[in-house]
Amino acid sequence: MRILIATDAWKPQINGVVRSLESVAKALGEFGAEIEFLTPQGFASVPLPTYGEIRLALASPRGVSKRLDGPSIDHIHIATEGPVGFATRYYCLRSKRSFTTSYHTRFPEYISARARIPESITYALLRRFHNAGSGVMVSTASIANDLQRRGFQRLMYWSRGVDHSQFTPDKASVIDLPRPIFLYAGRLAPEKNVESFLALDLPGSKVVVGDGPSRRALQAAYPQAHFYGSQTSDALAVHYASADVFVFPSRTDTFGMVLLEALACGLPVAALPVPGPLDVIGASGAGVLDNDLRAACLAALEIPREMARAHALTFTWANSAKQFLDNILLAKSSGSRFMTPSPGIPG
C-alpha cells in the first residue's frame, strides 16, 4: 500500500509530531507499506506569529494538487491542521478521495493561552476539519473521550512507541551538578507550563533541554536553572539517562513523546494528573501524578529506574505502525463506522 502523509510539522522542527511521523513511517515499511510525505519543503513560507522558529508553508490547493496528481496513491493521511493539511483536505474533498486525519496538538488550548481566543471557536473549526474525513486518529483514551464530547466523529486509536536502543539507561553519564537532578525536556512556550516547574522549591539542580519563544524570559526569571537548548536525540538520551526525575508540567499535551523517551532511559516521571500522563503513566508505578508537582517530584525519587524502563518497553513503534495501518484499512472499508472510546489503549 502506498500512503501519502501530509504534514505541516517537519524538519528542521524538533518536536514530538515530527519524531512520531518519521518513526512510524520507518516501522510501516516492515509491514510492506510505502510512505511518501507532503511537507512544507518546496513551498514558500512565513514565520508563525509569536513563534518565529516555526514557519508556515504558503501551500495552495493548486500547488498541492500538482504534487498529488502524480503516481498512484492508495491512501492520504492528513497529520496536521495547518496550510498543508487544509490544502490537502480541499484536494481530497474536491476529488472525492477518502482520507484520514490525526489529532496531535490541542491547538484550542494553545491559541487561548497566547491570543485569548475562546477555545470553543477553535474547536468548532477543528471539528469541521476532522469530521470531513473517514477517521481521526488520536493517541489516548482521554483525548478520544474529550473529542467525542465535543462532537468529533469516527475516532480511532493510534498510540506511540519509542526507540529502546536509542533511548536507554546505558547512555548515563556523570553530570557535574548538585543532585538530585530534575529534568525538563521540550518546547519552551507558554502552553508548556514550564515556569510551574522552575518555580518549585526543590533540592539539587533543575535542568532544561529545549528551545522556544519563552526561553529568554525563563532564563532571566530563573537564573539558577541550567538551560542547554535544543539537543539531538542522542544527546537528549544522555540527559535523560543521567538525571534523577523527569518533570512534565504540561496540562495541554495530547500524549507527550518525551515521557516515553525518559522512561526508556530509566528516568521516573513526575507530572500532573492530566491527559497524556494519565494515559502514558497511569497506574504503572513508573511515575508519580499529583496536582502538587513538588510532591510528585520528591516522590518520584523513590521509584526504581528498572520500573521506568520496564514500562517503556511496552510501547513499540511496531505496535504503533500496526494500529496506524489497521485504522487506514478500516477507514477504507467502512468509513462511516464510529469507533467508541474505551477505558484504555494498548501500548
Rank of each mutant, 00 (worst) to 15 (best):
M1Q: 14
L4C: 13
L4P: 07
T7K: 03
V17Q: 04
L21V: 00
E22Q: 11
A25Y: 04
G32I: 08
A33E: 12
E34A: 08
E36P: 02
P40I: 04
F43P: 00
P47L: 08
P47C: 10
L48F: 12
P49A: 00
T50P: 02
I54V: 09
R55D: 11
R62Q: 07
S65I: 01
K66W: 02
R67F: 01
S72I: 06
I73S: 00
I73P: 00
H77R: 01
G82C: 02
F86M: 04
C92M: 10
L93D: 09
S98T: 05
F99R: 07
T100V: 07
S102K: 04
H104Y: 11
I111N: 13
S112Q: 15
R114Y: 13
I117H: 06
S120M: 03
A124E: 11
L125F: 12
N131P: 00
S139G: 13
A144I: 02
M156H: 09
D163H: 03
S165V: 09
S165D: 13
D170G: 03
D170T: 08
A172R: 15
L177K: 02
P178N: 06
P178A: 10
F182P: 01
A185W: 08
R187V: 04
V194E: 02
E195N: 13
G204V: 06
V207L: 15
V208T: 10
G210Q: 13
S214H: 06
S214W: 07
Q219S: 12
Q219V: 02
A220Y: 06
A221C: 02
Q231A: 15
S233D: 15
A237R: 07
D244S: 14
F248N: 12
D253R: 04
L260G: 01
L267I: 10
A271R: 09
P273L: 09
I281K: 08
A283S: 13
L289C: 06
D290Q: 09
D290G: 07
A296H: 05
L298V: 13
A300D: 04
L301Y: 03
E302R: 12
P304R: 00
R305S: 11
A312I: 01
F315R: 15
Q323D: 09
L325Q: 12
I328P: 01
L330D: 15
A331T: 09
G335A: 12
R337Y: 12
R337Q: 12
M339F: 07
S342A: 12
P343D: 07
P343W: 14
G344S: 15
G344E: 14
